[in-house]
Design a protein around this nucleic acid. Structure first.
Length: 190
DNA sequence: CCGCCGATCTTT
DNA sequence: AAGATCGGCGGG
């Protein structure tokens, strides 16, 4: 299973986001197949953390593609994005949900008693990070290098006709249909 | 299954 | 003061 090359990410986020469906995110022995993503397009996008320009929090999104932008929200949750586009631009794909593949025992411990079923492990952006052990420690790390958090291609193609909708949980920029998901997958968030 | 509410703290 | 969320609880 090969890490996706840097060029994969060095494109417009609206091309990269649907292409990330069915790719595999790996962290140590834990892995999950991505089934739900959202695109965020920086300074043109009122829904993006980067809308008002770079800050200490968002500087990773303005950097080179193929890195992880991890942010903390609601006082308790981590969420992860794959940074896209050219260095200096601000584009990222929020990794919203995955189908657990390996390391399910470790994921269950990490997620705690709320995760009764397998589909409770990775079926949301903060659940995915908690299950995979993604937090501040891996913000800015390279997902191409093959060390640490890596996004891989195991040969499964993206769906030819993915589900599509507006993004979830936004007030600003809520009208853009920049969410893609694997239709019918039980791990897609609600 | 659905909807509401509180938790908790960083960022602006 | 609000936020790219989640889990528990109550009702249908």
């Amino acid at each position: 299973m090969n890490a996706l090359p840097r060029e994969f990410y060095a494109r417009d986020v609206l091309e990269v986001a649907p292409d990330l469906l069915n790719k595999v995110i790996v962290h140590g022995e834990r892995s999950a197949r991505l089934v739900e993503v959202e695109a965020y397009a920086g300074t043109d996008d009122p829904g993006s953390h980067g809308y008002r320009g770079p800050t200490p929090r968002t500087e990773v999104m303005f950097g080179p593609p193929g890195h992880l932008y991890v942010y903390f929200t609601y006082g308790m949750h981590w969420c992860a994005n794959a940074v896209c586009g050219a260095d200096g631009t601000c584009m990222a794909v929020l990794l919203r949900a995955g189908a657990p593949l390996t390391g399910l025992e470790v994921m269950r411990v990490a997620r705690g008693p709320a995760a009764r079923r397998d589909r409770d492990l990775c079926s949301g952006p903060a659940k995915l990070c908690q299950a995979l052990g993604i937090d501040r420690a891996v913000n800015g790390t390279d997902v191409v290098a093959g060390t640490g958090v890596t996004i891989c291609d195991d040969g499964t193609p993206p769906p030819t006709d993915p589900g599509r909708s507006t993004r979830i949980g936004l007030t600003a920029g809520a009208d853009r249909r920049w969410r893609w998901f694997v239709t019918g997958d039980p791990n897609v968030s609600r």
